[in-house]
Computed example of a mutant assay.
Amino acid sequence: MDTTKNDAVDAPTTSTEDLNVTVLGTGLMGGGIARTLAAAGFAVTAWNRTPAHAEPLRAYGVSVEPNLAAALADADVVLVVVYDAASVMDVLERGIGAAPAGAVWVQMATIGVEESRDVARFAETKGAHLVETLMMGSKDQAENGALTLMAGGNPALFDQADPVLQAISVKIVHCGESVGSGSVVKLACNLWLACITSAACQSVELLKGEGVDPQLFLDVISGMTTDSPYAHLKGGKAITGDFSAQFEVNALLKDLGLVGEVMARRGFRTDLLDRQKALYDEVRAQGHGHDDVSAVALAFASPRDTPGLS
Rank of each mutant, 00 (worst) to 15 (best):
E65Y: 15
L68I: 03
L147I: 14
P66Q: 11
Q141H: 06
M135G: 00
M136A: 08
V64P: 00
N144I: 10
N67K: 08
A128S: 13
E132P: 02
P66I: 12
W105A: 11
V91T: 07
V119N: 02
I96Q: 01
F122M: 13
A99L: 03
A146S: 09
V131H: 10
A146E: 11
L68F: 04
V113A: 08
D84E: 11
V119Y: 02
N144M: 12
M136V: 04
A85L: 11
M150S: 13
N144T: 09
V81N: 08
M150Q: 13
E65S: 15
A98E: 02
L134C: 09
L147M: 12
Q107F: 02
D90S: 08
D90M: 07
V113D: 01
E132C: 07
Q141S: 06
G97W: 06
V80A: 15
A142Y: 03
N67V: 08
L79M: 12
D118C: 05
E143A: 13
A123N: 04
A75Q: 10
H129R: 15
E115V: 00
T110L: 08
D74L: 11
A86S: 13
T148W: 11
M136Q: 06
V64K: 05
A86V: 13
L72H: 05
G152N: 15
V106F: 03
V80W: 00
A75L: 14
M150Y: 15
G112A: 09
V80F: 02
G152Q: 15
S63N: 13
A123M: 03
H129Q: 15
V106D: 02
D74F: 12
A98H: 01
A86I: 08
E115W: 01
S87M: 09
V131P: 01
I111N: 02
G145T: 04
A86M: 12
R121M: 08
A146T: 06
T110Y: 06
A101V: 12
I96T: 07
A73G: 12
D74H: 14
S116N: 03
E114I: 07
M150T: 14
A123Q: 04
T133M: 09
A151R: 13
T148N: 14
A70R: 09
G137I: 03
S87G: 12
A146P: 01
M150I: 12
T110P: 01
E143K: 10
M89W: 05
A75N: 12
A85Q: 13
L134D: 01
A101P: 00
